[in-house]
Amino acid sequence: MTALATPPVATVPKARTKAPRPARRRWRRLTMPVVLVVFWETASRTGLLPEEKLSPPSQVLRTGWRLAEDGTLAIHLLDSLTRAGAGLAIGAGLALVLGSVAGLLRVGDDLVDPPVQMARMLPHLALVPLLIIWVGIGESLKITLVSLGVFFPMYFNLYAGIRDIDERLVEAARTCGLGALARIRHVILPGALPALFLGLRLAIGAAWLSLVVGETVATQSGIGFLMMEAREFSQTDVVVVGLFIYALLGLLSDLILRIAERKALTWRRGLRAT
């Protein structure tokens, strides 16, 4: 007798969990900020949060609109952006040069890295009294503080990014006949880019922090000056407007950098949250 063939068992495909749509994710990310703003407004209106201590969001919004309409906000914002841009360019430029020299050359590592390692132990914001003696209390002080805040995150991340490159890749490129410049362009630069972008993101955050401190020292313009002047008259709504401006500037700069990083590192696929 021939054995009867067993019919094939139908396999039920596993249900795949669909990733949330981008629009749904955006709304979900806005949930907690909206809840916090509503709680803040309610606490201020009911007297739970005294208005002289912290103005309600509606009052802050009206004050911000008034400052934008009369041009006050634009003037101070332009001065702050100018200082931040100059400090970022100087600090990042020095970090790129010194980090590359220390990371690529043994003599550079011996001469550049030890003093930089020593200097990073000093909080740059604590150097304000000494910097006032060196460069005065004018624009040079603000730009110097921003440059110092930018330099160290950029330098150390670039240095670490270069040193973390697998030496076998460099040897393989040398074996294939690539010269020093070609190895830097095709092996070292792509390998160090993720660390460089991380350093740039940290540097931008440090730049805004340094600018806040710098603009509170003997200045007549800038968002920090606007906040300090408002503090003298207990105008908490103007102070909160300044804080929101700093937060939006930091958020916008980080968003732009994320987009640039995504376009520059198309070859890298990292773990995504589920």
Rank of each mutant, 00 (worst) to 15 (best):
S140C: 02
T175V: 14
C176D: 11
E139F: 02
P123G: 11
R185Y: 11
E167M: 08
W134C: 05
P129K: 11
Y159Q: 07
W134L: 15
A180G: 05
H124V: 01
E139M: 05
E171W: 14
G179F: 08
T144N: 09
M121K: 10
P114C: 04
I143F: 05
G179S: 09
L122I: 15
V150D: 02
P114Q: 03
F156C: 02
L111P: 01
L169F: 15
R185M: 10
G149Y: 01
L122R: 03
V112Q: 01
A172N: 13
R163T: 02
P153H: 07
Y155A: 03
L111A: 12
F151T: 01
L111K: 02
S147Y: 03
I162R: 01
L169E: 08
V146K: 01
L178W: 09
R168I: 06
G136A: 13
Y159W: 14
Y159P: 04
L127R: 05
E167V: 10
P129Q: 12
M121R: 09
S147C: 08
D166W: 04
R168A: 09
L181V: 14
L111F: 12
V187G: 06
M121A: 15
A119Y: 12
F151L: 12
P153Y: 02
D166H: 09
I188D: 00
R168Y: 08
R174H: 14
V170T: 14
V128C: 10
A182L: 12
D113N: 13
I133D: 12
T175C: 10
D113C: 01
I162N: 00
A172P: 05
R183S: 08
Y155E: 08
N157R: 06
V150Y: 03
L141C: 06
P114L: 02
R168H: 13
I165T: 03
I188G: 00
V128E: 11
L127N: 04
Q117A: 14
S140N: 15
P153L: 03
L125C: 06
I184H: 05
I132A: 08
I137T: 15
K142Q: 12
G161P: 03
L158T: 03
P129D: 13
V116E: 00
L141F: 07
